[in-house]
C-alpha cells in the first residue's frame, strides 16, 4: 500500500480523532465538535511543522 505522506497523515488523523472524540466526550454533539477540532489540528500542526523543518539540511 503506497500512500503519500499527506495521505498517510490524513488517514491517521481521521481515525485517531474518531477514537479521541468518542473516548473523551459524552454527547454526540460534543464528540463531533471535538473530533473535527482534533482532526484539523493534526493536519494544521503537521503542515506547520513540515514548513518549519523544510529549510533544515538534516
Amino acid at each position: 500500500m503506497k500512500l503519500s505522506h499527506f495521505e498517510a497523515l490524513t488517514v491517521f488523523a481521521l481515525l485517531v480523532s474518531i477514537v479521541f472524540a468518542i473516548t473523551t466526550k459524552n454527547t454526540p454533539r460534543a464528540q463531533l465538535q471535538y473530533g473535527v477540532l482534533v482532526f484539523f489540528s493534526f493536519l494544521a500542526v503537521a503542515i506547520v511543522v513540515g514548513w518549519i523543518m523544510y529549510p533544515l539540511p538534516f
Binding site: 491517521f12 481515525l15 485517531v16 474518531i18 477514537v19 468518542i22
Partner: peptide, 9 residues
C-alpha cells in the same frame, strides 16, 4: 465506530 477505526488503523 471504534471497531472500524482501530482495526482499519
Amino acid at each position: 465506530l471504534l471497531l472500524v477505526s482501530i482495526v482499519l488503523l
